[in-house]
């Protein structure tokens, strides 16, 4: 399953994601035309920060989304095909319950303050074979369009490597007789080394 993944340690707060989001959601889709459009095309991603970290805040398209559950008029739904959470502007009554329940602060008010405005996962771009604008625009890969199954796999491998390194360090401090399983694993390492 592909989604926009965040690595805030890589974020320089350049705000390219914000501008690319605004351009992607403008009527013209072109910077030099979009800046003249009214109302302005608001960005659905916002770069926030703490003294130690820059954090692009965006909708993470929860699988069990509080906004979907809380919306009193059913204006927010889960799109099963793309795995995104979508708002239906025509149904939105502007109660902003979604703003209150979102744990990420990812829903903002529209320019005229009458509707909820949030990330649509760049559904249109995905349909055209493009990545979400924020991820494809990010110059440092702080935001990337990634397969979360792959991320899980990578994390599992990292965890294994970390455990192995910890064990090796412990063995250096307090050497012990290897168990028969460890002997087999040692041989496996030798085979892997060729």
């Amino acid at each position: 399953m592909k989604k926009v993944a965040l690595d805030p340690l890589k974020c320089t707060a350049c705000r390219t994601c914000e501008l690319q989001c605004s351009i992607a959601h403008s009527r013209s889709g072109d910077l030099y035309s979009a800046i003249f459009e009214s109302p302005p095309s608001l960005s659905r991603i916002r770069v926030s920060w703490t003294p130690g970290l820059n954090v692009p805040v965006r909708c993470v398209h929860c699988e069990n989304a509080p906004c979907v559950a809380a919306c009193p008029v059913g204006a927010i739904t889960q799109d099963g095909r793309t795995g995104t959470v979508q708002t239906m502007e025509e149904r939105c009554i502007g109660c902003f319950t979604c703003v209150l329940v979102c744990p990420y602060g990812a829903v903002r008010l529209s320019y005229d303050r009458k509707k909820a405005c949030k990330c649509d996962g760049c559904r249109d771009r995905l349909g055209r074979g493009l990545e979400p604008a924020c991820a494809s625009g990010c110059p440092t890969n702080a935001l990337s369009y990634a397969d979360f199954d792959d991320i899980v796999q990578a994390k599992i491998s990292e965890a294994a490597a970390r455990e192995a390194a910890a064990q090796a360090r412990a063995d250096r401090v307090a050497p012990r007789e290897p168990s028969s399983l460890e002997r087999i694993l040692e041989m496996r390492k030798e085979i892997a080394r060729g």
């Binding site: 690319q20 979009a34 608001l42």
Partner: peptide
């Protein structure tokens, strides 16, 4: 894509209170 603040000319690095950049989309 290249930085749109730069493309619009609204990125200012002339002093060390900045860098400052003015967003044309009312985001900042």
């Amino acid at each position: 894509p290249q930085c749109a603040f730069g493309e619009l000319g609204t990125c200012c690095i002339l002093c060390y209170m900045g860098p400052c950049r003015i967003d044309p989309f009312d985001n900042g």
